Computed example of a mutant assay.
Amino acid sequence: MVFKVLVVDDSTFYRRRVREILDADRELEVVGEARNGQDAVDMVQSLAPDVVTMDVEMPVMDGITAVKAIMQQRPVPILMFSSLTHHGAQATLDALEAGALDFLPKKFEDIAQNRKEAAQMLCTKVRLIARRGIGIRRPSLRDAKPLPPSAPKQKFFRSSGLLSGRNDAASQPTVSSVTRSGKLYKCLTIGASTGGPVALQKVLTPLPADFPLPILLVQHMPGTFTHAFAERLNGNCKLAVKEAEDGDILRAGHAYLAPGGKQMVVEQQGSIKRLRITDETGQDKVSYKPSVDVTLRSVASVYGGDVLSVILTGMGADGREGCRSLKEKGATIWAQDQASCVVYGMPQAVASANISVKSISIDDISNCILTEAG
């Protein structure tokens, strides 16, 4: 299957560059180029692309406004291009909240060490969200505008082995609630990647300020983004949320977001649990900074089995081995269910390995956490 792509950017040079990369992929075909957000909104209607790549800063209509309009009129998966600045981070987070599914740094040298690797990553991201379809976010009936009778049907592809490289893990059914087990926990951990910023906000927002556990958050994200993301979560949540710093003492009702480009590990000092932020990965061969596996292995060594760990939407398998270490100590592992993931890679990795004990929709995870550990 070939996915149709609309490229949106006010730079002719950048549009041409992106088009060359995407057209070289046999699963992708660029069907149009838009110079601003208004052109993008119009061309989504006329061309019916399967996926859109969208710049943030543009004349006439900016990318965030365009995302909102597209998600109201004809929802389609959108990949944002962003500058790795604090302002770029804030704008990208706004775009994700508006309905975009993922983002990449606009400078290809920030994506990977060489052009070939960067091109592969761009094509992979575009294919992933194109396959995911628009089912992850639909406008409310009140806000949605009717599509013309001639419009093609919107696509919704269930993410499975196409996205993660593994067989479907349908053997673990989705549950919407849990019965409290009576287990006593000392820490909650949450790992996420693609689709994680919106998912994390959805999980954390309902948790009360007096939540009885410290929470460790590992989200694959550039270093210039994690501070802005932590600030946003702190403003939207009752919990105290911060970007983790070296030496932070873990406290109940506080959430610590691993800084991008670093590793976050937990260390025991007497009766105190303290965070260490480092460039080192120890014995772990990891591709991610931060890595869910690195953090969870340290959590297992400090907290043992007194941990509730949740793996949310994301590409790849980061978190599987860390969760395995936790489970061997007696910890409880949950995974986000397939239907509500942007990319069912990381949750599928723990589900198909029989490490997680429950698969839960993103809409129900916070209530389940409150029942089990709150």
Rank of each mutant, 00 (worst) to 15 (best):
T313E: 02
S366T: 00
S287G: 12
K155P: 01
R16K: 14
A255V: 04
P259C: 07
Q113W: 00
P290W: 10
A317G: 03
T226K: 11
S309N: 13
P290G: 10
T205M: 14
F156N: 08
S361K: 12
I78W: 08
P149R: 15
D55P: 00
S287Q: 13
L250A: 02
E117R: 10
A170V: 08
S177Q: 14
I311H: 08
K289C: 06
A230W: 07
S298F: 13
A258Y: 11
R17D: 10
S177D: 02
I311S: 09
G330F: 12
A349W: 08
L141Y: 05
G270Q: 09
M346R: 08
A349I: 05
P146D: 14
V218A: 09
E267Q: 14
A91K: 11
A91Q: 12
A258R: 04
D110Q: 15
G161D: 04
T92P: 01
V299S: 01
K238C: 09
L200S: 05
V286L: 03
K285S: 11
P77F: 09
I355F: 13
T12Y: 08
T371M: 09
S176H: 15
Y288H: 15
A373I: 08
R232E: 07
C237F: 14
S140P: 06
I78G: 11
V350F: 14
S82V: 03
V44G: 13
C368I: 04
E57I: 11
D39W: 00
S271F: 15
A373L: 09
I129C: 09
V299N: 02
T85F: 04
Y14T: 12
N234I: 05
S171I: 06
I21S: 10
P173C: 08
K329C: 11
R115S: 12
V203H: 06
E109A: 15
G133F: 05
V7M: 13
K242W: 02
L216K: 02
K68R: 15
Q269D: 11
A300E: 00
R16S: 15
D42Q: 13
A48F: 14
I134T: 15
L213S: 01
E245S: 14
